[in-house]
């Protein structure tokens, strides 16, 4: 591994880039949601409040950290960085400039599935470690919700892989050049993926594990200061990660028309393609989550098991037959 690769992983287009993208995403989320609800949204920090998520993050890190008396201190204090690591590692498999990701292997998607599961596992561990009543109820809901959305999410991720005949994300992106986007090949899979990612992200209508009017902040209730800052940042990062995954798997990610022969310019154009697609997916998720009310856990499980799982199985069957 040479120095350039380290810079790529840590700075651009790796971790730092995605963290800043996560901040921008959070700002966009707050701003668009506010406008749809007739409000202004953040307006003070930076131009039009764009630095508000950054300010929130640094403010949280400087606050007093309160550790509950009966909590599992080791997991409670050291868990958040691991929780953060899950989507952070996931992002390096996604091509951002050029058609190849920083790290690419033939088994990318398997690792992505592990990352998604690990993220939920860490959330569960953090909730249990904090030993609150709200957290305990929330973890019950989280695990049940994960059990219901994992199968549709997995099948929805697998369908573009089958269509491309490749398990590597870079491979899937390359298979979608010339506007051969998989959203046209596996439209049901795309819809199922978006709905399942709402559940993974704990956004309405599936914000059941952190339903604030029922169980306060759910498994995050006992967190404060630095751990909370990490947890919040991880939520935004997962947001970007899943949008980027959807953009790469279904909308062609960085793939698009080649405009110049100059490598560095063309890389910039690839980055622009990628960002446009990611933000498009992001806006779709913002709109869906703003327009819906929270369902109950049994209703969510019902929806995933009786509607989305058969749909994603059907999609997989169709895509296998088509190949």
């Amino acid at each position: 591994m040479d120095a350039l690769e380290v810079v790529e992983i840590l700075v651009f287009p790796g971790l730092t880039f995605f963290v800043w993208l996560a901040f921008v995403f959070e700002w966009l989320d707050r701003k668009t949601t506010a406008r749809m609800q007739g409000r202004i949204g953040p307006m003070l920090a930076g131009p039009r409040g764009i630095l508000q998520p950054v300010a929130d993050f640094f403010k949280l890190t400087s606050k007093e950290e309160i550790v509950p008396q009966f909590s599992d201190k080791l997991v409670f204090e050291w868990g958040p960085p691991f929780f953060f690591a899950a989507p952070a590692i996931g992002t390096i498999f996604i091509p951002v400039v050029g058609l190849n990701a920083i790290v690419s292997s033939p088994y990318d998607l398997l690792f992505i599935l592990f990352v998604l599961a690990f993220s939920t596992l860490m959330a569960g561990m953090l909730g249990y470690a904090s030993a609150g009543r709200f957290s305990t109820i929330s973890i019950g809901r989280l695990v049940l919700q994960y059990a219901s959305f994992e199968i549709p999410l997995l099948l929805a991720i697998v369908s573009p892989a089958v269509a491309a005949g490749n398990l590597s994300i870079s491979g899937i992106v390359q298979a979608q050049s010339n506007f051969h986007w998989f959203v046209f090949v596996v439209p049901i899979g795309f819809a199922v993926f978006i709905v399942s990612s709402l559940a993974e992200l704990e956004k309405p209508p599936f914000d059941i594990p952190d339903a604030k009017t029922e169980i306060a902040a759910g498994w995050m209730t006992e967190f404060s200061a630095r751990p909370l800052a990490y947890v919040k940042l991880t939520e935004s990062l997962s947001y970007v990660f899943l949008s980027a995954l959807a953009a790469s798997l279904f909308l062609g990610g960085t793939a698009g028309p080649v405009l110049t022969n100059v490598t560095i310019l063309q890389d910039g154009i690839y980055l622009a393609y990628f960002l446009i697609k990611v933000f498009a997916i992001g806006f779709a998720i913002f709109a869906i989550k703003t327009a819906l009310a929270r369902v109950r856990i049994n209703q969510a499980a019902n929806l995933f098991w009786t509607v989305l799982t058969p749909l994603s199985l059907l999609q997989l069957g169709i895509v296998i037959l088509l190949r």
């Binding site: 949601t33 749809m36 609800q37 007739g38 409000r39 309405p204 209508p205 914000d207 339903a211 009017t213 703003t290 327009a291 819906l292 009310a293 929270r294």
Partner: peptide
């Protein structure tokens, strides 16, 4: 009711 059921948009609109 919008707020209690997690439908913040309804909450904001009606209060608006």
């Amino acid at each position: 009711v919008g707020y209690w059921t997690g439908f913040d948009t309804l909450f904001m609109w009606i209060w608006k």
